[in-house]
Each structure stands twice: as C-alpha cells, then as structure tokens.
Simulated assay, not measured.
Amino acid sequence: MRTKTIGLIAHTEKAGVAKLARDVIREFKERSLKVIVENQTAKIAKQKASGSIARIAQRSDLIVVLGGDGTILNVVAMASKNLKPIFGINVGSLGFLTTVNSSAYREVVDAIATGRISYSKRALLSVELRTNRRVLLSVHALNDAVISRGDLPRLIRLNAKVNGEALTEFNADGLIIATPTGSTAYSLSAGGPILSPESGVFVITPICPHVLTNRSVIVSDSSVIEISPGSTEFPTFLSVDGREPVRLPAKAQIAIRRARVMLQLGFLPDVSFFSVLRHKLKWTGSNV
C-alpha cells in the first residue's frame, strides 16, 4: 500500500535538526505526500504542529524519525499500541536502528515516495510488573528489560523461570532480557550473542554473574519469562529500554513475553542487518 501520510518526529536537541526537518518536509511536499509534524519538532522547525507523538502515530502511515536509536526507542514507547512503520534518519553517528546519515535525506524521501523501502519486522517485549496479582506496570520494549541492583555495589539474587519451569537463581549485578534488536545493545556489552532480527528468539543475559557457568540463555519468543527477586535484603530495579528505573516492591514478579504489536523498521534497498553489523562493529576480512 502506498504511503500517503508521513509523521515527522525529531530529537529537538540535536544540532542542525531544525533545518533538516524543514528540508525533509519540503522534499515530501514536492512529491505530493502529506506530512504531519509532532509538536516539539514543529516548534523548532517553525511548522504547523499536528499533535503529540502518540497522536502522530495514530494518524500517520509511516513515521520518519530524525535523531538516534534512543529517539526511536522513545517513539516506540510513546506510540504504544498505535505503533506504525518507522524509518530513522540519523543525526550524529550511525546507529543500529537509524542507519542512514542526514546527508542522504533526499535519497530516503525518494525511496519512500516511490515505494522502494524495505522493512524488517522487529519483535517487541511485553513487560508486566505485578505483586499479589495486582499489575503495577505494563509496557512494551523494543530492546530490553533490565533488572539490576541500581547504585548499590552488591550482588542481587534473581529467580528465573521459563514457561513456568525454574531456570536458575542468578547471583549477579542484574539480568537482561533482550529481543534480537536489543541483542546488539546492553546484552552485547554484557557478553550476550548477536541475534538476527527474524530469528524468533529472546536472550536472557546475566550482568557480571558470580557463578562463571551462568551464561546467556536463548529461548523461543513464544516463551513466558518470569523474574522475581530472590531476596529483599537489597533494592532491585526494573528499567525498560533505558527508561527511568522502577524499584521493585516486596513479592514483585516480572512477566515478559512477546508483545502482540511489532515494529516494521525501514531500510534503504541496499542496506541490510548484516551490512549494518559490518559497519558498526568494524568487521573486516578478505570477503568484506
């Protein structure tokens, strides 16, 4: 289906983003595509405002994000169940999600206008925090859910179950449950594996485990992962996609499963997940 309405959302504190937003809007309009602009983006670009991120997500066919990977994570969080396909144009260094430099904005606009964008389907996590059967928090994550010790330099104990069966008790600084998209973020820094976007799995990665045999565990994305603190002696926190951490109450349980909604992430025709990996991780060799 041809894209008719473009939603434009920018990281307004990025240098040069106001001019880029105006240039992108002009290019879309020259190709007779309607552009609706998020409130803060409209303010810096001196354009007509069309609403909040959530409102833009409701009304658009495709969201163009000007910023970095963190900007896309924020848009995914704000859009929630109204999430639409996203194409990221990077303002700064290239990321894993925003793979096109701002200097190539005309190429991006042309590819969108002519229907040459390719899409990668990205699974999201549904993260639910509850206690005594009462739901305290229910959110989606594109990258990961992190259960950690916070600022206190002590190990915490976390009990993990997969589909109701005990996995193990982790004695570590924390635990990361990541999607394939999130496998190249915090989980990778903690020693986790890189997962291709369509692999159909999640990864459970401990952060600095005390037991050397505690390593990343890959599970099907149809699994239900349950995490609960093994002790209330020290504070434990939950952070989803890098958002403000929430302190876990007594008898807290975290249930993580694949969300019903998914993200279609746009790429230019000549860009692939593996080409991005080669660039970002600086892989070289006789065949690269």
Rank of each mutant, 00 (worst) to 15 (best):
R134A: 14
T205I: 14
S183L: 14
I225S: 04
F202W: 15
L136Q: 08
L125S: 11
G200Q: 14
T131N: 12
P153D: 01
T181C: 02
I156K: 00
F170K: 02
I218H: 04
D151R: 12
G192I: 09
I218F: 11
L152V: 09
A123H: 03
E169I: 13
R116Q: 09
V162P: 11
L142V: 13
G191F: 08
N171T: 12
A178P: 13
G200N: 03
S196T: 13
S148Q: 09
E165M: 15
L142N: 07
A145N: 05
E128K: 14
A190I: 08
K161H: 13
S138Q: 09
V139S: 06
L188M: 03
I227L: 12
T205P: 12
S138V: 15
S187W: 04
G174I: 01
G192R: 08
R130V: 04
V162N: 10
A145R: 05
T184K: 05
F170H: 05
A166K: 10
S118E: 01
T181R: 00
L167Q: 08
P229T: 02
S187V: 09
A178W: 05
A123F: 05
I156F: 00
N159P: 00
D151F: 08
P197D: 07
D221H: 10
V217W: 05
I204E: 06
A190R: 01
I177Y: 04
G230S: 04
L129F: 04
V139D: 12
I225T: 12
F170R: 00
P153H: 05
V203P: 15
V139Q: 08
I204H: 07
S189A: 10
R154L: 00
S138P: 06
I207P: 05
I117T: 10
V135C: 14
H140E: 04
R122H: 05
R130I: 02
G164P: 15
T184V: 05
S222Q: 14
N163G: 09
L155S: 01
S189T: 02
R154P: 00
S199H: 03
R133C: 02
V211N: 15
T114R: 02
A172F: 07
V211C: 10
L167V: 14
A190Q: 06
P209M: 00
I177Q: 04
A190N: 03
L175T: 08
L142I: 08
G191P: 07
